[in-house]
């Protein structure tokens, strides 16, 4: 448990968070491991967790008819995976699949959600951090949409 707390405390995503919140987060955390090819989460399923990826590579995928699995982005070491646990209706919006052996820390979102509702300071701290991640992903998505390397644009 001590190591988990240190990992959570040292992760840039939680930088500047009060000690009591770190302890609380560490209380909701557990080590997880996914073999290459294994799905970490599935579109439509209930979103009750998020992950701090410690090692490996995760593909965010959407399956489309006739086109198979499309990888929209890959995540890796240091990245945060999953925010649907925080936003109603708390269902995953895409698939996440481990490309290679992936180790992560899973945080119990259902438990955190309840705590955020009770303690808005904690809720705001977490939302601020997720808003930043969302902004970064949105910017990257816009850039990706521009298809800047296409031959005729």
């Amino acid at each position: 448990m001590e190591t988990l707390e240190r990992i959570v405390a040292e992760h840039p995503f939680f930088a500047g968070l009060e000690e009591q919140y770190i302890q609380l987060l560490a209380g909701c955390a557990s080590n997880v491991r996914f073999e290459g090819g294994k799905y970490i989460l599935r579109e439509g399923e209930e979103a009750s967790q998020f992950f701090l990826i410690r090692h490996g590579r995760v593909a965010l995928e959407i399956s489309a008819p006739h086109r198979g699995r499309l990888t929209v982005e890959t995540l890796g070491e240091g990245d945060i995976l999953g925010w649907s646990w925080l936003i109603p209706p708390y269902h995953w919006r895409l698939d996440a699949r481990a490309v290679d052996l992936t180790r992560a820390i899973a945080l119990d979102g259902t438990c955190l959600r309840t705590k955020c509702e009770q303690n808005h300071d904690l809720g705001y701290e977490l939302l601020k951090r997720f808003a930043h991640i969302m902004e970064r992903r949105l910017e990257a998505t816009r850039f990706q949409l521009l298809d800047v390397y296409a031959a005729h644009k």
């Binding site: 590579r57 593909a59 699995r69 990888t71 890959t74 890796g76 240091g78 990245d79 850039f143």
Partner: peptide, 23 residues
């Protein structure tokens, strides 16, 4: 290296070049 559109056989990064700065 990263690509905007990865195929099924691609095991590398998918995402725009700015996403590589995370690593």
């Amino acid at each position: 290296s990263t690509v905007d559109y990865g195929g099924l056989s691609w095991r590398g990064h998918v995402g725009v070049v700015t996403t590589l700065f995370r690593y």
